[in-house]
């Protein structure tokens, strides 16, 4: 759809514009907010592949977000204390290098997604939601009861990790990095959707019987999609931890899994930039309404209710339809 393409460009361009305005006006806090949007949108892009393309309502994607966060926290804390990490015979040096941390985060969340997927994809519907939620809670309570890395208090990293050639402590440069990764993930999603795998995955969501009748295995397709999805959300987790220079068990919380779902539903399920619109809306509400009242989630709830009832296509759905009415 052409119109959706313009709206996507406007969304991403708008985010850049806000950052540009904040940069020239010397408002680093706004840049940090925009960075949050980019990172949460990236996590949402991950979930959108499982949910939008695969139809998998995962209420446990915080697992991957948290694993990404702890991958960063653990590696960086060992580098910070000059104590190598020993796993039996294996001795791993800590690192402050973002590319290495990202790789670790992605591999670890990919493995977790594979194992969780193998179990939970045997079920469907409500059971799938419940099993993914259960896995999320397992990781959450595990992180709380793991004193080596801060337990309930979490883990602070004093200096942001480094990326070759960049000063990541400069908000605008770190934003650029996160935004580039978001664009890469969006480009991947766009290609994926029309590639044979995406076609098969989408068909398996719409009609599993049809997929099987042409020799495709829906469970296998969903498992692969779930792993890809977990890997992207895991990467976002590592970035999020780096943004805050802090990891804590809340990154594993079911509220976070729910928020990721909310981004997608707000923005438009399965829409390429749905998570971007959703995350931007969420952060904007949190920022403005959060200043007015501690209970700003009431308004978020009302908005979500409105979208679900009156605009199942999400914010992007509303925008494309209005555009359509113009011509």
């Amino acid at each position: 759809m052409m119109r959706e393409r313009y709206i996507n460009a406007a969304l991403l361009g708008g985010l850049l514009l806000v950052v540009f305005w904040a940069y020239t006006g010397d408002e680093p806090f706004t840049i940090t907010l925009a960075t949050r949007v980019a990172i949460l949108a990236l996590a949402g892009v991950g979930l959108n592949i499982a949910l939008g393309q695969g139809g998998l309502v995962s209420l446990g994607h915080a697992v991957f977000f948290g694993i990404g966060g702890y991958a960063m926290g653990i590696l960086a804390s060992h580098a910070q204390s000059y104590q190598p990490l020993t796993l039996g015979p294996l001795v791993i040096e800590g690192t402050k290098s973002m590319p290495l941390i990202w790789l670790t985060a992605m591999v670890a969340s990919g493995i977790a997604a594979l194992l969780i997927g193998l179990v939970s994809l045997r079920t469907g519907g409500v059971y799938f939601i419940m099993i993914t939620l259960a896995f999320g809670q397992m990781f959450y309570y595990f992180a709380i009861s793991w004193p080596a890395y801060g337990g309930e208090d979490g883990l602070s990293i004093y200096v942001r990790n480094g990326f070759p050639g960049l000063n990541t402590l400069d908000p605008i440069q770190f934003f650029g990095l996160c935004f580039a990764l978001l664009l890469a993930a969006l480009a991947f999603h766009a290609a994926f959707k029309h590639a044979p795998f995406g076609l098969a995955l989408n068909a398996a969501r719409q009609s599993p019987d049809r997929a099987q009748a042409v020799g495709l295995d829906p469970t296998r397709l969903r498992l692969i999609a779930f792993v890809i999805s977990g890997v992207i959300t895991g990467l976002a987790g590592a970035l999020f931890a780096d943004l805050n220079r802090f990891v804590s068990p809340t990154m594993f919380s079911w509220q976070l899994s729910g928020e990721l779902l909310i981004f997608i539903i707000l923005g438009g399920t399965g829409r390429l930039c749905g998570p971007v619109a959703g995350a931007a809306m969420f952060i904007a509400l949190e920022h403005w309404l959060g200043g007015l009242s501690e209970y700003w989630h009431i308004y978020l709830g009302a908005l979500l209710l409105g979208v679900v009832l009156f605009a199942p296509g999400g914010l992007i759905g509303i925008a494309t339809r209005r555009e359509a009415a113009h011509d």
Binding site: A195, P196, V214
Partner: peptide, 15 residues
């Protein structure tokens, strides 16, 4: 695609 038994690619458009 199903009948061809090929690996389903992630990037190149199916068309």
């Amino acid at each position: 695609f199903g009948a061809s038994g090929r690996r389903l690619g992630l990037f190149r458009p199916a068309l």
